[in-house]
Design a binder for these strands. Structure first.
Lengths: 114, 114
DNA sequence: TGATTATTTGGCTATTATACCAAATAGCAC
DNA sequence: GTGCTATTTGGTATAATAGCCAAATAATCA
C-alpha cells in the first residue's frame, strides 16, 4: 500500500495543477466560506454551465472538493480546508513579486531620465 | 498600486500552476534543502538540460525561486520557503484520496464476489 | 585568441487543456 | 407519462505546454 517518492511527487503536482487555474482557484476560495451550488459559480464567473462543471470535476478528481446532490441541485464543498492555510504564503510571493517589479520600474524611470 | 480581486486570483493561480508539474515540484522540494545548481537537477531528473532550464525559468517567473550565477554555474534557491508548509496539507489530500480509492476497491471486490 | 563547459534560447512537434455548443441525464412537479 | 430545471457529458476548435534538438550566450582557462 506504499507509494514511492516519484509517484508521490506526481500526485502532489496534480493537486497543485488543479488549483492552477483562476476559475478553479476562485471556486476553492469561495467554498472556504461554505458549500455552494454549481449555479452560484456560473453566475459569479460568467462562464458556461459546462465550463464550470468541468472545472468542478477537475477539483473533485484531485480530491480537493466533494459534491452532494440535493434535489435538482448539486452542492460542492471543500474536502480539505487546510488548502486555505497556504494562501498567506501565496500572497507573500505575490507581494515580493510586485515589490520587485516596482523596483525595476523605478530603476527604468531613473535610467531613462539620464 | 492596488490590485483587484480578479487579478489577484489570476496571480495566485499562476503560482499554483507553476508548482503543478512533477519536475518543477521536485525541484522546489529539493531546493528546500538548500541551493542547487542546474546540473544537479539534470542528473537527478534525467531530462535534457534545456528542459530543466525551462522548468526553472517557469518557477523563477512565478517568483518561487531565484538564481545566482557563480562562475560557469547558475545556482537556484527557494525565494519563499513557506511553500513547504503547504506540503503537509497536500499529503493529507493524497492520503484521503488513497483511502477513498481503497474503500471503493474493497467495495468492488465485495460486489464481484456476490 | 580559441577551446571548453554550463546554461539559456529558439524552433519544432506531440500532447494536453480550455471553452463553447449541443445533446444527454437526473430529479421534481404536474 | 410530459415538461421543466440543474447539471454533466461529448464533440470540436483553439490555445498552451512539454520535451527534444540545435544554435546562441557567458564565463573560464589555456
Amino acid at each position: 500500500m506504499s507509494i514511492n517518492t516519484h509517484e508521490l511527487t506526481g500526485a502532489k503536482a496534480r493537486i497543485f495543477k488543479a488549483l492552477g487555474h483562476p476559475t478553479r482557484l476562485y471556486i476553492v476560495e469561495t467554498l472556504a466560506d461554505g458549500e455552494k451550488c454549481v449555479c452560484e459559480f456560473v453566475d459569479a464567473v460568467g462562464a458556461d454551465f459546462s465550463t464550470i462543471s468541468k472545472h468542478l470535476s477537475v477539483l473533485k478528481e484531485a480530491g480537493i472538493i466533494e459534491d452532494e446532490k440535493r434535489g435538482l441541485q448539486v452542492f460542492y464543498r471543500l474536502r480539505v480546508p487546510c488548502i486555505m492555510n497556504f494562501m498567506g504564503c501565496i500572497n507573500e510571493v505575490i507581494k515580493i513579486n510586485l515589490e520587485k517589479q516596482l523596483t525595476l520600474f523605478k530603476q527604468q524611470k531613473r535610467e531613462t531620465k539620464k
